[in-house]
Design a binder for these strands. Structure first.
Lengths: 202, 202
DNA sequence: ACACGATTATGAACAAAGTTCAATAAAAAT
DNA sequence: ATTTTTATTGAACTTTGTTCATAATCGTGT
């Protein structure tokens, strides 16, 4: 019952994360427990604490995976039309975001439904990862701003992101009932983006 | 150890909710446990299950309180200028919402951070309560729509709400770092509302 | 080969969580 | 006074995260 060395530290780490990933996908992150993971990978709970410092640690690493997937998705150039206007590609990006949220609801919810204990600090590399998500968005709306309009551009990017996210969140969690009773959410996002973009020109 | 009849059923209910409310306000809803509540009101955990069916039941009732507070706040006529244009009052409403989120962060987070177990269905009265929140908003933007534009008005109300909420949520949870690095969130909300409103006119 | 030290997995143990329920004490009814 | 009803309890069960002494095995030096 010791030093099996069947798997390296690194292998164990990915095995644990893979297991946690699958459990999350199937049943949501609240079903992720040390004992469930251990059972899934053929180890015991204690092992997980040899590789991660806590369950929070595991879930933060899981969050990072989700961010990575999201990032890879919205960065893929083949989704966009480089010749099109910003609002066209913006709508595509918003749809990609929304589709990820609905296709991988449980993984996506991990990012926002999982409440880090207030004592646990979010590691710096995680914040940097999220900050990177803004880059393609800022690049996309860049043509709408005069040179030197960096600040307004960053603000606009954050507003757009928040708005799209807010709609997806309230739709996904069904916290606001009837949100889809009057229009397709995609239509609403388009409407929102059009409104905001045309407002930028003032 | 029985039938003390110190308090009626109804009294017990409010005592439990008051205790849960205070614990939430002080330490967040994850600190709300049956044993904590029981200790606070001088009863034992079992008593709580005589009054509520489960801890979920307690937390849903708590959510209802938050919605009631929010509703009362944004409905108060004295906050608004009936002679002003919609965008002016809209901004006020958005600020009220944001201020509630920051002043009562733990209570507000209960609404969105507390994940109802997927098995637990949200009761109908709760959904109706939330739907009511839209009424003052729809009324406010009514002048922007021609008669018969009911559908577009409802859509616009939901988009506005989602956007404002998205910004507040990402700010409050600090899920998106640096969101406040470039502008005051109030300024961002104003910018967002202006953009969207001016986009409605097309 | 052998033994020893370093490492690694274990599983028993702890506290605290939600939840249940037979037992009990007190109020109400007879 | 006795019985019935009911409110409250507290012990018990399961499951959670987490710790750590213990045991097993690998790598290495003799």
């Amino acid at each position: 019952m010791a030093r099996r060395n069947d798997h390296s530290r690194e292998e164990l780490k990915t095995m644990i994360l893979d297991a946690a990933w699958n459990i999350t996908g199937d049943e949501g992150f609240s079903a992720v427990t040390a004992r469930r993971i251990a059972r899934a990978i053929g180890y015991t709970p204690g092992t997980i604490y040899n590789v991660f410092t806590s369950m929070d640690d595991v879930l933060i690493a899981l969050c990072a995976r989700v961010v990575d997937e999201l990032s890879a998705m919205i960065t893929l150039p083949s989704h966009y039309d480089p010749a099109a206007r910003p609002d066209h590609n913006l709508k595509i990006m918003a749809r990609l975001y929304r589709r990820y949220a609905s296709d991988h609801l449980h993984h996506w919810m991990l990012l926002f439904g999982y409440n880090l204990t207030e004592s646990t600090q979010v590691p710096e590399w995680y914040n940097e990862k999220i900050a990177l998500l803004f880059d393609p968005l800022e690049q996309m709306i860049s043509p709408l701003f005069a040179p030197g309009g960096e600040r307004r551009k960053k603000i606009a990017a954050r507003i757009l992101w928040s708005s799209v996210h807010g709609l997806c969140f309230l739709e996904a969690t069904r916290k606001i009932p009837f949100i889809t009773d009057y229009a397709d959410p995609e239509e609403m996002m388009d409407y929102m983006i059009d409104g905001f973009i045309s407002g930028i020109g003032r």
